[in-house]
Design a protein around this nucleic acid. Structure first.
Lengths: 189, 189
DNA sequence: AAGAATTGCGCAATAC
DNA sequence: GGTATTGCGCAATTCT
């Protein structure tokens, strides 16, 4: 039904998408069974380093105001400073450490250097997300092809088993013919 | 090495993550081989409806100002209206149709109804992304388990083939013993 | 130390 | 009307 060359080609492309830059395996990989060629890029490193407060179950999309200090404190919320948000800015007195917005040389919005960095990061973000999209699609295709291959292998196993049974049966017959010299070997008694 | 119950359980979970809401198959699915249980949720519907100008190759992360009317026209760029971006706002005279920002009852930022809608959408976004994360991880696990299963099946095929060869050899020996009555049956000429 | 990559989040457009 | 999906920009963090 399908040429094997295309299958192996896509699988190779999938593999290369994971070991491509050789910097995906030493990320975190805290999972025990995802250590060989998968990288778990999503919610694992985040869950341990960053937010990670209520992301362990299906509770991460709660209104987010119920979890803990959410808006504009530790997270990267309200970066539209002139948006007249209904929530105030607690970043000036919550968590005295890890503070950056007020100091840090007053990052000087609308400076050329800031815009340059922003634009560079935007390009990097697009690139990274494109890569992630490609990787996801390759993984999906790989899973489908592996399933097809599994089906074929199972059918092959069925064939071989049947053939083996036939030969075993024939051999047992011959064994009866060959060893029993005309006597009543198996049926009587 | 691994109990089969866990494998099938994760595979079932994976399958349910795709057919969960039964609204994933009629998205677009323009690919021919991804029609059975995959959904291709990423870059396909977007590529046809939205930007989709240079996303067909590895060119989608170019500075994005080189493609075509990009900033603040058709895409959803600069929504920080008071950010002093270096790019101007062409949305008032480009593409006269599909226009919304200037009219549409002047959406009235900082209104309670706007904030309500925004917060609801934020919840939906978090939920959707969480779902996507789960689906991606399940697909990865599924691929790995399918590969393990493939290895086992291949080994089983090797066993069966070897066994079959043995039996065939034995049978050929017996055939020579049984049918050839001392004559030169097969080897000469 | 500095740039690139990754990632959570919010916004807006759009799909459903 | 509402939720769901998704590209994009921002900021924080991590990686190189």
């Amino acid at each position: 039904m399908m040429s094997d060359s295309r299958v192996s080609s896509v699988i190779q492309e999938w593999a290369s998408s994971y070991s491509g830059q050789a910097h995906t395996l030493n990320h975190n990989t805290p999972s025990s069974q995802l250590a060989q060629m998968d990288m778990v890029p999503y919610s694992q490193s985040q869950g341990l380093v960053r937010g990670g407060s209520d992301d362990m179950m299906g509770l991460s999309y709660l209104p987010y105001s119920t979890s803990c200090l959410n808006n504009s404190s530790a997270g990267s919320t309200n970066h539209h400073q002139s948006h007249a948000n209904t929530q105030q800015d607690f970043s000036s007195f919550l968590l005295p450490s890890l503070r950056t917005p007020v100091n840090k040389r007053s990052i000087s919005k609308d400076s050329a250097e800031y815009r340059l960095r922003r634009e560079r990061n935007n390009v990097a973000v697009r690139k990274s997300r494109d890569k992630a999209r490609r990787r996801i699609m390759l993984t999906q295709q790989r899973a489908m092809q592996l399933q097809e291959e599994n089906q074929k292998l199972l059918m092959r196993i069925g064939q071989l088993t049947q053939e083996l049974d036939s030969l075993k049966h024939i051999l047992s017959q011959r064994h009866i013919q060959g060893s029993d010299d005309g006597a009543a070997g198996t049926s009587s008694i």
